[in-house]
Design a protein around this nucleic acid. Structure first.
Lengths: 215, 215
DNA sequence: GAGCAGGTTTCGGTGCACCGAAATAGTCGA
DNA sequence: TCGACTATTTCGGTGCACCGAAACCTGCTC
């Protein structure tokens, strides 16, 4: 057991995990193919290998779900990714919209030792710069109940918990609007929020779909 | 042109460069195979590709030598490697005998941007912790004239310029003996040196073959 | 219940980096 | 100059991760 996971396999596991982290429905092979930017046939093949290694379960023509072992591998990658992002922002002069690419690569090559050195330099941060929780070394994730801004009822007041780092453009826009993890705001109407200083901000649909608030 | 170099190709170029850095004779395919831990047939194949990309020249059954373009690629990798090693020692709590493996991997995945961020945090160091010169971004290397301790005549007095990082055990022994880059010493007889504090140290052949002194 | 549209899988094939075995070239000694 | 020895190359083959095209399920509509 404990097959040495390749970078490609880590990406599959991470992506499956990421899908289930903020919504409950399982991911399909085609969804995974789209997210990873590979052909569906490539997914079939890799899924077969991961299933053979006991990292995920898959009924043919059905959805995918991680086993406990798979989830552990996935959270290990996510942990690396988020600690690296945090480090890039806090120590290396990166903005929060610039860290994703670099972390995407380094997450596969950094050693445990270096990762822990970074972690301790940063003072063991609980979340990354986007507000995503950093799993601990055992794969445990401390995730607060959250709702998508896009689905929050008008009048809902909350604190920004996290912002999806999928789209750097959205992150840049939000930084310009002074919205980030910790920002308190009120949902005035579906795509409009009011900040603590009384100013209002109009958001795009994509942006409202990227922001998670305290429930 | 400017073919995107793979990690494997970078390792070949780096190893060829490393061979010529401290001794003038060109490397042979079998020497390269040994250093890289691959079969000779693998070397033939990769050499063919690198030659096709204009990175090295190779007359069949003859030795290998880098073209200017190849040397530039090689020094870029060496630059990464040495800056990463320096960073690991100066900022991340590594000892100088522990950095090689980690740098060996990260040198292939760090972006130019992150590398330069590290470089500037370190204050643009001219050498790594073993005393190896760090090439600049144009591939220029500032290398002082040096002689191997093993070949230095008795009576030769000099300063330790660099110590090969090939064998971590030697590095640990030397650290325990308080010998490192900058240490002034006198070669008393072939395998014995005297330090500035008057103490003598007996060296193994392998150790004397790893230490370079000012000429 | 037949047919259709979707997603999914199978299948043959690619490039990369590696291997061992066999063939070949170069070099050096007798 | 002829071997013989060694280094190098060629050759067929491996595993990994990917692809497109074709075959195949599944669930849904009519």
């Amino acid at each position: 057991m404990m097959t040495p996971t390749t970078p490609a396999a880590e990406d599959y596991l991470k992506t499956i995990y990421a899908h289930t982290e903020w919504q409950p429905d399982p991911i399909t092979p085609s969804g995974l193919a789209t997210r990873l930017g590979v052909a569906p046939s490539s997914v079939t093949e890799m899924v077969k290998k991961l299933a053979a290694n006991g990292l995920l379960t898959h009924v043919p023509y059905g959805p995918l779900s991680l086993t406990d072992a798979g989830r552990l591998r996935a959270t290990a990658v996510v942990r690396r990714h988020r600690l690296i992002e945090t480090w890039l922002v806090r120590e290396m002069g990166y903005d929060w919209d610039e860290v994703h690419e670099e972390a995407e690569i380094l997450e596969h090559s950094i050693s445990d030792r270096l990762l822990e050195a970074i972690n301790s330099r940063l003072g063991f941060p609980p979340t990354d710069p986007h507000g995503d929780p950093i799993p601990d070394a055992n794969g445990a994730v401390d995730r607060a109940p959250a709702i998508l801004l896009a689905t929050a009822p008008s009048g809902h007041a909350g604190t920004v918990l996290r912002i999806s780092d999928r789209d750097p453009g959205i992150l840049r826009d939000l930084a310009a609007d002074e919205i980030g993890p910790g920002t308190r705001l009120v949902v005035v109407e579906p795509l409009t929020v009011r900040l603590a200083n009384g100013r209002s901000r109009r958001l795009t649909v994509a942006t409202a779909d990227s922001i998670w608030l305290t429930a």
